[in-house]
Amino acid sequence: MNIFVCVKQVPDTETKVTPNSDGSFINLDSIKWIMNPYDEFAVEQALQIKAAQSESTVTVVRVGSVRDTEALRTAMAMGADESILVEAEDNLDSYCIAKAIKGGIEKSGKTPDLILCGKQAIDDDCLQVPQLLSQMMELPSVSMVVGFEQTGEDLKLRREIEGGSIEVYSLKTPAVVACNKGLNTPRYASLPGIMKAKRKPLAQHSLADVGVTDGDRRVKYSSFNLPPEKPPGKKFEAMDEDAVAGVVSEVVGLLRNEAKVI
């Protein structure tokens, strides 16, 4: 199987994110970059399939800017075979990213049997690329996948829907599958893996190489700003058990009469 895994490099969840001086995007200095957490489940799924089907290859694709820490190297250190980087600024919209991924996959000359993605990237939180990519490539796709079974070209996937309910899908490869937390437990890169990853092939393309132009941009962002800070709230001391009843009664009163939410 030719397995492709789409990864994105995003600011760490604990990183402070602030608007840049002209509000056109965020301040990119002093951000710690990580592989998008949901993409780790996609990489792990690919590696588990490869472990079961040794003739499979795992190619990781990323669209974004070149940085010192590289999610693609991390994925290869985990065990992926090769990588494709489409170099672009970090604020592309979902449409351009999906089109660039499609172009990058086509450049590889391999026909994908399975394309795995994280269910969403935690930077712009759009949840669009897997579905858009499947439209552009005319493949079926399932999002929010928490269960994956494969028999030959038959896939049985479990998708999480509202309230923790599950939809069970059957489909055939080739397909696009967007992975959610709970699907598996991503492995850590081993030291030998990290050493090996340095020698694994990484193909690099420009956006123009993969057919993406300025005219492809669909979503325009401006005026990045911090959300308004709330005025400080009221704090009540109830460590002493005798104070609990009084405090609770006061807070409930405030919720009803001041905040008017109950």
């Binding site: 965020i26 930077d123 939180d125 492809d216 669909r218 979503v219 962002y221 990045f224 700003n225 959300p227």
Partner: peptide, 16 residues
């Protein structure tokens, strides 16, 4: 819309 899980907000428009 919020980005980075609400750490920042941005104005957003469509084209195409």
């Amino acid at each position: 819309r919020p980005l980075f899980a609400g750490k920042v907000l941005a104005t957003v428009e469509l084209d195409g």
